[in-house]
């Protein structure tokens, strides 16, 4: 984790919003919540047309050529030197940590490095760049946090979700067993090794279900789809939501 050394910029006037493909197709409310949270902080949010996927599924499958084709189409969406904010630790990690490696030695290397340097995960950006202050308008609730592995280890955001929840007066943070353990999603891993993935998500969903939380929040839609999909099929009581939707729901209607 010492590898994650971050120099936060001053709060900018404008940011690019990179929604990610899972948010676009399956969790659009997360994207809207993220945009609204940023706008409430007085930031103009630019949503580049033509954004799709960061290329991570191909990259983690070892298909560098395909990943590069998709990633190259995304690289050109952010021409101005504004921060790129992503509501996902995993996709932010792809832009920040893996684009430089993917494009090393190509004509796009400099552009990839430049983009990597201004890519931020959304909760990190809200907490440390916007220095957001959240006011809670919700009922008392107990919440557990699942931080994605790439969020935790590539983006160094293990503490940002809990820190934001701590600003909400009626939210009690509950600790699950083995919080740092992977949920078993891993992109195509869940399809290539379904039994191992199932054993992992079962343990994760049950840890969240057993910890006394009313619900859990996650920083990544991939983990959410995995854990919540399992909880739904097994009819577990504790269900999940993206942390950004949760923060917006609790705090909309007033700012401190």
């Amino acid at each position: 984790m010492s590898d994650v050394i971050k120099q936060y910029p001053a709060k900018p006037a404008r940011v690019y919003f990179y929604a990610t493909c899972l948010v676009d197709l399956f969790y659009p409310e997360v994207g809207l919540a993220g945009i609204q949270l940023l706008e409430r902080e007085g930031i103009e949010v630019i949503f580049p047309q033509h954004q799709s996927c960061c290329g991570q599924p191909a990259y983690t499958s070892g298909l560098n050529g395909q990943a590069r084709t998709v990633a190259a189409s995304q690289l050109e969406l952010f021409p101005e030197n504004w921060p790129v904010v992503v509501p996902s630790g995993s996709c932010a990690g792809m832009l920040r940590k893996h684009y430089p490696r993917l494009f090393a030695g190509t004509g796009l290397a400099e552009q990839a490095e430049q983009l990597a340097g201004r890519t931020w995960e959304l909760t990190d950006f809200l907490l440390h760049v916007c220095r957001i202050r959240l006011q809670d308008h919700g009922e008392p609730v107990k919440v557990a946090v699942h931080t994605s592995c790439s969020g935790r280890r590539e983006m160094g955001i293990a503490d940002t979700g809990p820190a934001l929840l701590a600003q909400l007066d009626n939210v009690e943070l509950v600790q699950q067993a083995r919080p740092a353990e992977c949920c078993g999603f891993g992109g195509t891993f869940a399809v290539r090794h379904p039994e191992i993935s199932a054993a992992m998500v079962e343990d994760k969903a049950r840890a969240l279900d057993d910890c006394g939380a009313d619900q859990f929040v996650s920083t990544d839609c991939g983990c959410l789809m995995n854990i919540d999909g399992f909880a739904d099929k097994q009819k577990l009581a504790t269900r999940g939501q993206h942390v950004v939707s949760f923060l917006w729901q609790r705090s909309k209607g007033g700012t401190a």
């Binding site: 399956f26 869940a190 999909g229 739904d232």
Partner: peptide, 22 residues
Amino acid sequence: LGAWTRYRSAPRPAAQSLQQQL
């Protein structure tokens, strides 16, 4: 959806994508 739904419910796409809504 193959192996995915052996253990999990199938994810349901949104009625309107984020880009459509925006």
